[in-house]
């Protein structure tokens, strides 16, 4: 049995009459990076704030390390590191002071690792916080969190203000944590980041988790795009159930591209093989395809076939 670090069951949160979280259920297992994706306002940060005991759940349950996130907040926080989505710092403290303070609040010390991180991120810790840009404020929180010795790391859109170089440094550090069997909850809408780092993904929409699983499992639910050139024309393709968006290449003969439901790939391949394949290129769906598919559905209210 896999050890579950975070367990959330049918979590709900109401702000007055507004139902911010309707039904959130997912878990984060030991040693994995869990990607938490969804558009702005879907409830990612609210979920995380409930997990941190900043907000009180209206229903359902949430535990970290098997302890209740509201009642045992302090005990949980001793083994946890967090980077908020918007980092606000005390304007008259320097970045260096804030980093040290955040470490001390968890009874830890500025270590060689802290210095290494400051160097990696090319961060100037002597400036007053009010002079830092968004990216630099984020670096403060990241350096403090990454140099904290913890079992669970929660990042809420940690790279939204970072340039690609720093984003890369962040990703490397997270992968290192993963190698040390740490658990990571990464909320993001930078899909390439999630795709690259996450073992499993949860998709949130309007306060509900609508899908969880590994990227592979999710791909299974969607379509692969295939571009193929055959010796003989393949006009029967449209008779196969599950094949969509057939487009014939205008320049080359017998070249066609289409998308196919994962469970129908077999049937499509049999047909193509019979026609003599010259070249074949298959593109697995990206997370972006998945994401858009879910959200287009969202805006239209029904599953669309326009892919």
């Amino acid at each position: 049995m896999v050890e579950k670090i975070v367990e959330i069951n049918h979590l709900q949160k109401k702000f007055g009459k507004v139902q911010a979280l309707e039904d959130i259920t997912f878990d984060v297992r030991k040693g994995e990076v869990f990607g938490f994706i969804g558009p702005n306002g879907a409830g990612k940060s609210t979920t995380i704030r409930v997990l941190l005991g900043i907000l009180r759940a209206s229903g359902g349950s949430a535990t970290i390390f098997g302890q209740d996130v509201w009642h045992d907040a302090v005990a949980i926080h001793g083994r946890l590191a967090y980077v908020p989505g918007d980092v606000y710092l005390w304007p008259n403290l320097t970045g260096g002071e804030v980093i040290d303070l955040l470490l001390k609040l968890n009874h830890q010390k500025h270590s060689a690792r802290t210095d290494a991180l400051i160097k990696q991120f090319e961060f100037d810790p002597t400036k007053k916080s009010r002079t830092y840009s968004k990216g630099n404020r984020q670096k403060v929180a990241l350096i403090a969190a990454l140099s904290t010795e913890a079992d669970l790391y929660i990042f809420d859109e940690p790279t939204s203000g970072l340039d690609p170089l720093n984003e890369e440094i962040f990703q490397q550090n997270v992968l290192q944590l993963k190698q040390q069997r740490k658990s990571i909850l990464l909320s993001s809408h930078i899909l390439s980041e999630v795709e690259r780092m996450c073992d499993r993904i949860g998709i949130i929409r309007q306060g509900k988790i609508i899908e969880t699983g590994s990227l592979d499992e999710m791909r299974h639910l969607t379509r692969t795009v295939i571009t193929v050139q055959t010796n003989e024309p393949v006009s029967e393709l449209d008779q196969i159930d599950g094949v969509h968006n057939i487009k014939e290449d205008s320049k080359q003969t017998n070249k066609v591209s289409f998308s196919v439901d994962s469970e129908k790939i077999d049937a499509a391949m049999e047909l193509l093989a019979a026609k003599g394949i010259v070249s074949l290129q298959s593109t697995p769906p990206t997370l972006e395809d998945l994401f858009l598919r879910y959200y287009n559905n969202d805006s239209q209210g029904v599953k669309s076939d326009a892919q």
Binding site: L93, T94, G96, D100, K104, P125, R130
Partner: peptide
């Protein structure tokens, strides 16, 4: 002008009390 400050926190700055006191110092 705001001058650059300490690179590291002093020993005193170690918890919420000292943080709030520090912020209110002036």
């Amino acid at each position: 002008v705001t001058k650059p400050g300490r690179k590291r926190a002093s020993v005193v700055l170690a918890g919420p009390f000292s943080l709030i006191f520090r912020l209110e110092r002036i």
